[in-house]
């Protein structure tokens, strides 16, 4: 499967977020069982010829009167999964060492997940946050909802500071029905801040998947000469020689990520880390794997 994965540079070169998401999901789904589950609900889907054993309540009598043939009316099965995606739009998400930023990668990931779930007939909601909740799209499953999610993400402006714990607390208060909560962020704030909010979310019965998106330069500090680093969110500046501090930096970053994973596991959430040079299909596979773990 990995040989068929699409290079992220090819995907990210596409301007349309919707096209990116569809391309990733369609590519991802190729070869999987694509049968759509039909049930009987209020949302009409299509006709099927009547066969013995079918419930005669769903025969379309008007069609029978016109054509003298028996057809069963199929309806979209009612969904019972409600998925809410919490997407970080803070200024740190605009960092990029490749041709695309963490924000582009994260929003594509969110759109791909939304499209994947949408095609499965699940309701998807979206919450954008930085140091406060910027925008909320409630979880729905209806025609046009996916486009609304895309528009919300496309018009989102970069925010300022990050308060992921606050966003998680807000979600715990707001989401009444149980469902799946996907957190997509770089999660660079201290790991211990997440502990309480993750637990309260789990306490409400939500399944929580935490997806950390990092730039490769953030992981390996791949700068060659001394420069003045300026924090994107706080504008703090320090002089540093990357050659000198690289080992220390990577150690700190590894420790931070380890703590994050520990906190998530302690709270019953699933933690996955992605770098922006990884194929996005891999993220989807990781997501499905995480779903199976919940079951």
């Amino acid at each position: 499967m990995s040989a068929e994965l699409m290079n992220p540079s090819v995907i990210m070169a596409i301007r349309s977020l919707e096209l990116r998401a569809r391309l990733i999901v369609d590519g991802f789904r190729t070869g999987l069982n694509r049968s759509n589950r039909h049930g009987f609900s209020v949302e009409f889907s299509e006709y099927r010829q009547y066969t013995r054993g079918d419930d005669p309540r769903f025969l379309d009598w008007k069609l029978f009167a016109r054509t003298d043939r028996s057809y069963i009316r199929l309806f979209e099965d009612e969904t019972n999964l409600r998925c809410n995606i919490l997407l970080d739009v803070s200024r740190s998400m605009t960092f990029q060492s490749l041709d695309w930023s963490k924000w582009s990668y994260a929003s594509t990931l969110a759109a791909s997940l939304a499209w994947l779930l949408n095609r499965q007939g699940d309701a998807v909601g979206l919450t954008l946050y930085d140091d406060h909740i910027r925008e909320v799209v409630p979880a729905r499953y209806r025609p046009g909802h996916f486009r609304r999610l895309l528009v919300t993400m496309e018009r989102a402006a970069a925010g300022q500071l990050t308060d992921t714990a606050g966003a998680l607390r807000d979600a715990a208060e707001r989401l009444q029905k149980r469902g799946l909560v996907i957190l997509i962020s770089d999660l660079l704030s201290p790991a211990e801040e997440l502990q309480d909010s993750l637990r309260s979310l789990r306490g409400c019965g939500h399944d929580v998947v935490v997806m950390q998106v990092l730039d490769p330069a953030e992981v390996s500090l791949s700068f060659s000469e001394p420069v003045r680093f300026e924090d994107l969110e706080t504008a703090v500046q320090i002089h540093a020689d990357p050659d000198t501090i690289r080992a220390d930096y990577t150690a700190r970053m590894t420790e931070h990520n380890r703590q994050l994973q520990q906190e998530c596991e302690a709270a019953g959430a699933i933690f996955r880390q992605f770098q922006t040079d990884q194929p996005l299909e891999l993220c989807l596979a990781e997501f499905l794997q995480a779903r199976r773990e919940f079951r």
Partner: peptide, 11 residues
């Protein structure tokens, strides 16, 4: 000057 995200990890 290079913008960066986790300046707090830098020494």
């Amino acid at each position: 000057t290079v913008p960066f995200t986790v300046v707090r990890f830098l020494k």
